[in-house]
């Protein structure tokens, strides 16, 4: 248990939809920083909250940092974009170019990371809203850091809630930086999500 089984077809469809929206987020970022930025989603899973938190801590003993936005409407909960802390640092400093040689992000750099997260999370959330054919309103981004478990326990929600767990590849200056996007899904919205998915697959 701890994982929702979806068919290969369903998985391929979601992955494709997400990759298209990531592509447009990357285009926005590229234009802003005048540099080639690529974003892709190689993996999509639906996991129980505790399983997702463990998966984080196993994969990343180090602390994570990133951006969170609260969602209301068709989905209620938090959307998170996370990277190992030092990766967040390099993403921001590569994108900004002008660096402050200190070990953690300055306030202005955190704000820049918030904007990067905002662009990525908005594109993920809007593609999920499109799939659901419902509205999801998200709050402004907030910078966060902590271990996987800490970041997940910040979220409120039922133990049965599932997390849509995306691996994200952030391509920058010939580096590939691995991060994660997670969206909380309550069980009802998940069923909606799957049935809308099937409808669109059969229409395609």
């Amino acid at each position: 248990m701890g994982m929702l089984e979806i068919t290969d077809l369903q998985r391929d469809y979601i992955t494709e939809v997400l990759n298209i929206s990531m592509g447009s987020a990357a285009a926005v970022l590229s234009e802003m920083v005048d540099e080639e930025v690529s974003l892709s989603v190689p993996e999509v899973d639906f996991l129980q909250r505790s399983v997702a938190a463990n998966k984080f801590d196993q994969a990343n003993a180090a602390r994570m940092s990133g951006v969170t936005q609260a969602m209301t409407g068709a989905l209620t909960g938090d959307a998170l974009l996370m990277f190992p802390e030092e990766k967040t640092l390099s993403i921001v400093r590569i994108l900004l170019g002008d660096t402050v040689p200190v070990e953690s992000l300055t306030e202005m750099e955190q704000e820049a990371m918030c904007e990067i997260g905002n662009i990525i999370l908005n594109s993920v959330v809007s593609s999920v809203a499109d799939l659901l054919k419902k509205e999801i309103v998200s709050s402004l981004p907030r910078f966060i850091k902590g271990t996987g478990n800490e970041l997940f326990s910040v979220e409120t929600g039922d133990e049965d809630d599932l997390v849509m767990f995306l691996k994200v590849d952030f391509g920058l200056e010939s580096q590939s930086i691995n991060g994660y996007v997670t969206l909380m899904l309550n069980v009802d919205s998940l069923h909606d999500f799957i049935s809308q998915l099937d409808e669109q697959i059969s229409a395609a």
């Binding site: 802003m32 920083v33 936005q69 994108l95 900004l96 202005m108 750099e109 704000e111 820049a112 918030c114 904007e115 990067i116 905002n118 662009i119 908005n122 309103v137 998200s138 709050s139 402004l140 981004p141």
Partner: peptide, 8 residues
């Protein structure tokens, strides 16, 4: 909702 940071 969107944020436009000063740095970017």
């Amino acid at each position: 909702a969107s944020l436009l940071s000063r740095s970017l």
